[in-house]
Amino acid sequence: MDELASRGPAQLRMEHDGLVAKVSFTTGGDGHRIPAMAWLPTTHQGAPVVLLGHGGSGHKAIDRHHQLAQQLAGESVASLAIDGPYHGDRAVPGDAPLDYQHRVADEGPGVVHARMCQDWLYALDAASHRWGLDEDTVGYFGMSMGARYGIAVCAALGARLRAAVLGKFGLVADDPMMVAVSADEVVRRCAAQISAPVLHHVQWNDEIFPLPGQLELFDLFASPEKTMRARPGRHHETRADDLTAWHDHLAPRVVR
């Protein structure tokens, strides 16, 4: 990680949107490329960071990330996102939207989980060195696939993690491909290591991750301060007040 951090982000492309600087960059080394995006508040020296994990078939620059990052930047919090496995700038040319599932299954879910966790830590380290962010004060947000891979990241951050919003994900799935890409033993072990405050968002009528598996996951979080936000509706339903609740859980816990 030190070698990657010393190189810092490469191929920087910066845009300004109001008071927020949006930076697309890559980091990594030895042929391993991590496409990333950072949203930097006007005063970003020493700013805490919220990591934004996207769902399946999404990418680092989805609208939800932009909305959350804009809100957080107003409170001098930086945000950081990376593309998931075989998503965004890591997608294999010609693949259909769900082909990533077959690639993850073929590579091995445990291998992909480990690599995604390491990629997040590399990207956080590189961005923090480049822009002077506070990598010891970190939040995490991730729904669906963002939660699947984010739980291990939250565990790896340890005491650096100040708050997490995780949801639309559970330990039971009826879809054979969801089972094929799962690494439930990793998720169970890592959930039990998370002690920071957790907001667990549950879709009560989720057809991809049925309710029992979502409730089982909630029980596993070790945090003494954990809250379940349960909403009626299927997997992809999101309401405007959900975004507000996610922000309101993260912001006061990462802002010093």
Rank of each mutant, 00 (worst) to 15 (best):
D2N: 07
L4E: 13
R7S: 11
P9F: 07
D17L: 15
K22R: 15
F25C: 04
T26G: 08
G29T: 15
D30P: 02
H32S: 00
M37R: 15
L40F: 10
Q45V: 07
L51M: 14
L52H: 04
H54P: 01
G56V: 05
G58L: 12
D63Y: 06
H65F: 08
V77E: 02
D83S: 01
Y86F: 14
R90K: 10
G94S: 03
Q101D: 05
E107K: 12
P109T: 06
H113D: 15
A114R: 05
R130M: 13
E135Q: 15
D136A: 14
G139D: 01
G139R: 04
G142M: 03
S144R: 01
S144Y: 09
L161W: 10
L161D: 05
L161H: 07
V165L: 05
V165H: 03
M177L: 07
V179E: 12
A180V: 11
S182T: 08
D184E: 07
I194N: 05
A196V: 11
H200V: 11
H201R: 14
H201D: 08
Q203M: 14
Q203Y: 09
E207L: 00
I208H: 03
L211M: 04
Q214M: 11
L215Y: 07
F218Y: 11
P224S: 09
E225D: 10
K226L: 07
T227F: 07
T227V: 04
R231K: 05
G233V: 06
G233E: 01
E237I: 14
D248K: 01
V254K: 01
